[in-house]
Every structure is written in structure tokens, then in C-alpha cells.
Nucleic acid binder design. Structure first.
Length: 782
DNA sequence: CAGTGAGCGAGCTTCCGCTTGACTT
């Protein structure tokens, strides 16, 4: 009997596939890449034709040993990693690493996890495609060269531990440039003229709210026009009705799921991915890292059945979507429920909500267009070129809108509500003007990027992959290139001109709110300075088209038209010369700004980036006397800090007084504001201001901390608490860093939430031990 | 855990893309 070993990338996939194949097949997972360039150094031998030095990743050693063992006991090995560049490389690394000599080795691919697809794949094996592997090697080597050669320049020229890369540096650039636009934006005022007309109808009079076809720049123009309306004749000169269709959005990809979950559920990109992972592992949805909008035949059939049974044939329209995304690799299907018959699932609230979104989007993608009737009414004004107009929509057939409406980003106008029915009206009818007003409005700046809209932009540029969108955001946040910020709305007084039949034009004001934004990405000083430095010296890498350009080369490597080492050499030679000259010739950059002179000493005061963050400095660096330094507070920035604010920073550390014969000193440290009393430190609460806090308040803080410490010490005396004796010895309870736990026979078991570690009975404790041991043995079997 | 920032020099930091599991006190 032939023994077969199939290796896939994901363990959840392995589990599913194992069911489809017979006893002769065992399926294991590689958990993604098993080998990579060593982390420590460049690990690319530039002088030896860019030979990469690969190393089994630390966390994969045991796995590789297990795989090797499995290979030994098999006759045929099937490398079934994903059908894309990275998947091909994984297959090759497996081939290189596992001892496959004497074994029959095949490369197989399937992008649909069904029995038919897998059996078909096994009947059509091939060899590892070295051209595709080389394209991946080129990608990997390029990214390492860029990241590991530019980053050290930043350490020496700006600040240690900074980083640069093909993806992250462009992400930061987008955010910096958007912020510049926002800061340079000057809002323009304009006047919108609206009027309502009485429309006679059977029962009661109805109103028709319309807007003038022209907007005015100034109040005078608006007022003039408004005045002209009195006594004019208004005639309906056009009632235009035409059918419109709306088409559903394609099924979710990683990027569109992140966007929709962000807008509709308020999830961060990372949270969406975490919950999607849980849904995937529970078998509720297909793979969540994908750039494909494609649905398998199986999924199409299943979704069609669901549409028919829930809404009937009339609502069904089968559609196949094709991707327009740059550089998409489409190794997986779109994100969809594994079983459309699961209209809802048994899970926690977040999982349910995300699943619901995926289910609805999938269903809607296979439903009929919504059919609407769009009506435009135009009302001519006697003797004027301008006219009033309004549009309405009436739903004739809901179609997919029955289940799902795609949300849009805040940069786009929100979709009109599908139902806005206008009163019946005839062309040529004369209408009576009810009210008219001209209201001032202001133009608004472009919205700042949210996590999800940044992902969308990166995807449009072809930068980054589904598996890296979330990590990229966390990297630029971790480096403190950008922060997430809320922006309070600004209240602006707007002029409102109302036409009053007897009195003419009445002037009043109305407050409007502008510029409110939540959870948007904003660059920090470091982000801005690093971006400027990179643009000045490495504009090629920061170019929005850099990735697209190198991807073309990678494609040519993949088709065998180019040799990967030559492509890399063509890039590296000039790049490395630039690295050397930048290191040699560029000056240290600190983003320094002169704020003014210290009123006391007359010395210069600067704001700049230092080794540990942004700071203010009094006195010149090269003068005889050592300058004084103070760290900036959270929320302050080089661009916006004033001289006065800067000088205030020097009031710390501040001696507030004496307590028990020891100095009480207030300051701000690495971990926030604190009080020091002798050699003991006490954190200040958020409400306490280190510049204002009194001695009494400091003493109170010290005393409270002492009491709580004493209580903790007392509590500690109670532990370890003896619960009782069992088979192998005493069971005790304790409280550790991660909450209450019990110890038995040298092993620790976490205590479920509803148990009090001091009151738990012996029987309950034994239960906890037993059930934990059961769980452990189960997971071991897996 | 609660400093620092110049300069000296040790030793450290860093990329993108593929995948999940951790198990402490």
C-alpha cells in the first residue's frame, strides 16, 4: 500500500482535506513559510551573485522535524501549498529542507477546497515551478535589501530603532501628505439656495423641496437672487422619469471586508482579522486572507439555492466577478460562508456580526439588480436662466437591496436613501413658492485616512498583500510614525437668508459643525521628519509606482523572461551607491525649529527630535555651556509648540514640599507623571496635573498607595491557600500575574471566573483539575 | 520603571509575506 503525505499551508485546511482523502493519505500543514533569510544580518551574499542565506525559522524547527519524520514514513509527498508566488516558494523550501531523496514528489494546486477539486489536482500533478520561485526570491531579497540598508541610515541620521521599507514608508508618506493637504486647506464659503413649493394633491397640500441650479460665492449675490424671487411665476418645465439599476457589490476580499467592518461595525483592521480567523477556524467561513472576488461553482450553486428558497427565483441573478486589483494573485476564493444554509451561527456577538456581514454580502452578490425609477423635476423661474430642481427615487424592485447595502467611505457622498418619492406633478403646472432660503456652507478638507481607507489606498496602488495590511498599520503605529486621533468638530457660524413675503430678506445665523473625525491616522513629528528625509534621499522607493514597477519585473521573472539575480543587480548597484553617498553626505536631521529666545537668559529655544523623542532645548548645542533639555508632553509637536509652552516644560521636576522629612518631587517620566517621595515612586492619576498638583494631594496619593500595598501584602499572607487533599497530594489556590489559579501535583490550572480562590470547595477544585486535564489531552491528540 | 539629549563607543534596533499558537504565576 502506498503511503501519501500531503502538505498544505494552513492547519484548518489540512483538517478539511484529510476528510476528503482516504486512509492512505495523511495531511499536514507547514504553517506558512518554514524558511526565511536569517533575521540577524543581511543574509544576502551580494558579492556572490546575491545568494540568499536561508535558515529554518526558530518557531518552525520542531515542525520541520515532525514533517521530516512524516516524510520518512511516506512513499509519495504532495506539496500542496497555495497557487501563488509565495505558495510556490513554500513548496520549494519544503522540497529543499525535507529529505525527499528516494521519494516520489509532486506539486499540486487547487483553489477550491472540495473533494472534486482535490482529486482533480492529484490527477494533474506537476513539478515546482522554479521561475515562479525565483520571482518570490527576487521579491524577498529586494525587500530585505531596501529595509536593511535604509533603516540603519535612519538610526544614524535621525533616531535609533527606526525603520523603512517598500510598504511601510509609502503608507507613512500617504498619511503625511494627506495631513499637509488638511493643514493647507482653506475653507471656502458658498451659498446654496433652496425653495419649497406647494403642490396641490387630492387630500392635503404637499411640499416639493428643491435646490437652485447654481451656487453663489457671496452673500450679496445670494441675497440679490433671493429678492428677485418675490412675485415671480414658477412653472414645471420638465418631469423626467427614467429607470435606474443598482448592482450588488462583489463578494468580500480581505481589503473590502476590513473596510466594510470598519464602517458598519466600527472594527479596527486587526480586530476584523482576528474575528475572521476565529470564524475560519470554526469552519464558518472560507479563508480570510484573499484578494479574489471569485466564488467557486459549489459556492455559486449553494448561494443560488439559498436565494431561491428565501426570496424566490425572481431575486436570483448569478454573477461571476473578476478582480481589477493590481497584482492580485487569487490563490483563494473570495471570503464567504462555507455553508450558506447557516443564516446565523452559534458564536459570540462580534463573530455573529461579522459573519452576518459576510453572509449578506455573499448572498447579495448573487441577487438581481435593484430597479428604481428616478424622477427629476425642474422648475423654471420666470425671466431667469437658473432653475430649481429636485430628484426622487422610487423602488420598483428591491433585488439585492433586500439584504445588503454597501456602505461608502466618508470621502464620497452617502448613497441617497432608496426611497424618496416625489409628489405627482404635471409638466407645465404653475407652482406657488412657500419658502426660500439661501444658506451659507463651507467646503471641507479631504478626510484623513482611517485604517480601512489606508488599506484601500494601498491596495489600489498594488502595495502590500492581504496578509500584511493589518501588520503594516501596527508597524507604523509602533514606530510612532503615526497615531490614531479623534478630531473635535469646529462650530462655524453660517449666515442664513430667508425670504419673507412681507419683509423681504431676513438675515439670521445657524451654527454648523465641520471637521469632526474619529480614529483617523495622523503623522507625528518623527513620521514627518523621516518621510521628508526619505523623500529627499530615496525618492525611488517612496514613489507610489515603485511596487508596480518592480512587480512587472517579478512577472517577467515568473514567465522566464528575466533572470532574478540580474533584475536585483540592476536595482541594487545604483541603490547601494545612493546608500553610501547618503550615509556620507547627508546631515543629521532633527526637524529642529527655533521657537524664540528664553526671556530670562536670552538664549535660543529649539524644538526638535532627540534620542528618546521630541524635546525642547534652551541654548545652542555648540556653545560652551551645556544646553538644558526637557521632553515634550503628549500632544505637543515641533510644528505647533509655542515658546511659552516650551518654557513651561522646564518647571519639572518640581519640589512641592516636604513630607516625613523627605522631599516630595513631581515630574514626568518615561511612564507618565509621577510623585517621588524619598526613593519611592507613585504614579499620578490622569486628573492630576504635575504642574498644578499641591503637596496635600501628593501626600494623599502616597497614603492611598501605602494602604493598597498593605492590603496586597495581607492578601499575600492568605496564599497559598490550602483547599484539601486529593490522590496525589494537596490542592492549593493562589493568585498570580494572570489571575487566580490552583496547584495540584506540580501543575497549575487557571481558575474559571466564577470561583473565589479562598472559598472554592475541594470537590469543585477536583472538577477544575479533571476538566483541564481532559482538555489538555484532547488538544494533544490533535 | 521614573534618565536621557553634546561626545566618546560598546551593543542594540531594521524589511515583507506566509501561517498560527502561546500556557506563564
Amino acid at each position: 500500500m502506498t503511503k501519501n503525505l500531503v502538505i498544505v499551508e494552513s492547519p484548518a485546511k489540512a483538517k478539511t482535506i484529510e476528510k476528503f482523502l482516504g486512509k492512505d493519505y495523511s495531511v499536514m500543514s507547514s504553517y506558512g513559510h518554514i524558511r526565511d533569510l536569517a533575521k540577524k544580518e543581511m543574509s544576502i551574499n551580494v558579492d556572490n551573485n546575491y545568494e540568499p542565506e536561508y535558515q529554518i525559522s526558530d518557531d518552525k524547527r520542531k515542525l520541520v522535524a515532525d514533517l521530516q519524520k512524516a516524510v520518512k514514513g511516506s512513499d509519495v509527498v504532495w506539496l500542496a501549498s497555495d497557487e501563488d508566488r509565495e505558495g510556490e516558494a513554500i513548496a520549494w523550501h519544503l522540497q529543499e529542507t525535507l529529505n525527499l531523496k528516494g521519494k516520489e514528489v509532486h506539486r499540486i494546486v487547487f483553489n477550491e477546497i472540495t473533494k472534486t477539486a482535490i482529486l482533480h489536482a492529484i490527477e494533474n500533478p506537476r513539478d515546482v515551478d522554479m521561475h515562479l520561485v525565483d520571482a518570490q526570491q527576487a521579491r524577498r531579497v529586494l525587500d530585505r535589501l531596501v529595509g536593511y540598508e535604509i533603516s540603519p541610515i535612519l538610526w544614524s541620521k535621525i533616531k535609533p530603532a527606526l525603520s523603512a521599507g517598500r510598504v511601510q514608508s509609502v503608507a507613512v508618506r500617504l498619511i503625511v501628505e494627506r495631513e499637509e493637504e488638511v493643514q493647507n486647506f482653506e475653507r471656502q464659503s458658498y451659498f446654496r439656495l433652496t425653495a419649497s413649493f406647494a403642490v396641490p394633491s387630492e387630500n392635503a397640500e404637499k411640499s416639493l423641496v428643491t435646490e437652485l441650479s447654481r451656487r453663489f460665492d457671496t452673500k450679496d449675490e445670494a441675497e440679490q437672487f433671493l429678492r428677485k424671487l418675490t412675485g415671480k411665476k414658477f412653472t414645471v418645465n420638465k418631469v423626467d422619469t427614467k429607470p435606474v439599476h443598482r448592482t450588488p457589490a462583489p463578494p468580500f476580499t480581505t481589503s473590502t471586508l476590513q473596510q466594510d467592518a470598519g464602517r458598519k461595525l466600527g472594527f479596527s483592521v486587526a480586530r476584523t482579522m482576528q474575528i475572521a480567523q476565529q470564524l475560519y477556524e470554526s469552519g464558518y467561513i472560507t479563508y480570510m486572507r484573499t484578494d479574489s472576488v471569485n466564488l467557486s461553482d459549489y459556492a455559486l450553486g449553494m448561494t443560488a439555492d439559498t436565494v431561491k428558497s428565501l426570496y424566490g427565483e425572481r431575486f436570483l441573478k448569478q454573477r461571476r466577478y473578476t478582480t481589477k486589483t493590481k497584482g492580485a494573485q487569487e490563490a483563494h476564493e473570495a471570503i464567504r460562508p462555507t455553508n450558506m444554509a447557516n443564516t446565523t451561527i452559534n458564536a459570540d456577538t462580534s463573530q455573529k456580526r461579522l459573519y452576518d456581514l459576510i453572509w449578506k454580502r455573499t448572498l447579495a452578490s448573487q441577487m438581481s439588480d435593484a430597479e428604481l425609477e428616478k424622477t427629476t423635476i425642474e422648475i423654471a423661474i420666470e425671466g431667469e436662466q437658473e432653475h430649481f430642481a429636485c430628484t426622487g427615487e422610487q423602488m420598483l424592485f428591491e433585488g439585492f437591496l433586500k439584504v445588503y447595502m454597501e456602505s461608502v467611505d466618508d470621502e464620497e457622498p452617502s448613497p441617497e436613501s432608496p426611497e424618496n418619492i416625489l409628489p405627482a406633478i404635471d409638466e407645465g403646472a404653475t407652482l406657488t413658492l412657500q419658502t426660500a432660503e439661501a444658506a451659507q456652507h463651507y467646503t471641507q478638507h479631504q478626510p484623513r485616512y482611517s485604517e480601512a481607507s489606508l488599506v484601500k489606498k494601498l491596495e489600489d496602488l498594488g502595495i502590500g498583500r492581504p496578509s500584511t495590511y493589518a501588520p503594516t498599520i501596527s508597524t507604523i503605529l509602533k514606530r510612532e510614525y503615526v497615531i490614531k486621533e479623534d478630531h473635535e468638530p469646529e462650530t462655524v457660524e453660517c449666515i442664513v437668508l430667508t425670504l419673507d413675503k412681507s419683509l423681504g430678506v431676513k438675515v439670521s445665523t445657524r451654527n454648523e459643525k465641520y471637521g469632526a473625525e474619529k480614529g483617523k491616522l495622523v503623522p507625528t513629528d518623527i513620521g514627518t521628519v523621516v518621510n521628508k528625509f526619505l523623500l529627499e534621499h530615496f525618492d525611488e522607493i517612496l514613489d507610489y509606482n515603485f511596487t508596480a514597477t518592480v512587480e512587472k519585473d517579478f512577472d517577467e521573472i515568473a514567465t522566464g523572461k528575466k533572470e532574478w539575480r540580474k533584475v536585483i543587480d540592476g536595482f541594487y548597484q545604483p541603490f547601494h551607491r545612493n546608500i553610501l553617498s547618503t550615509q556620507q553626505n547627508s546631515r543629521r536631521t532633527s526637524g529642529q525649529r527655533l521657537l524664540g529666545t528664553d526671556p530670562k537668559s536670552g538664549k535660543n529655544v529649539y524644538a526638535k527630535i532627540g534620542r528618546y523623542g521630541t524635546l525642547v532645548q534652551v541654548g545652542d548645542t555648540n556653545s560652551d555651556e551645556k544646553p538644558r533639555f526637557a521632553s515634550m508632553k503628549k500632544g505637543q509637536s515641533i510644528d505647533s509648540i509655542t515658546l511659552e509652552e516650551a518654557m513651561n516644560l522646564f518647571e519639572l521636576p518640581r519640589t512641592v514640599g516636604k513630607f516625613e522629612d523627605k522631599d516630595v518631587v513631581v515630574s514626568v517620566g518615561r511612564f507618565g507623571p509621577y510623585v517621588r517621595h524619598g526613593d519611592k515612586f507613585y504614579s499620578l492619576s490622569k486628573a492630576d496635573d504635575p504642574y498644578e498638583i499641591t503637596l496635600d494631594r501628593c501626600i494623599a496619593i502616597i497614603k492611598v498607595k501605602r494602604v493598597s500595598e498593605a492590603e496586597k501584602a495581607k492578601l499575600k499572607d492568605l496564599y497559598p491557600h490550602t483547599i484539601g487533599e486529593y490522590d496525589a497530594g494537596t490542592i492549593t489556590s493562589n493568585i498570580g500575574r494572570y489571575g487566580p489559579y490552583i496547584t495540584y501535583n506540580g501543575e497549575n490550572f487557571r481558575l474559571p471566573k466564577n470561583f473565589d480562590p479562598l472559598k472554592i470547595t475541594l470537590d469543585q477544585a477536583i472538577d477544575v483539575v479533571k476538566s483541564s486535564l481532559e482538555k489538555k489531552s484532547k488538544s494533544k491528540k490533535k
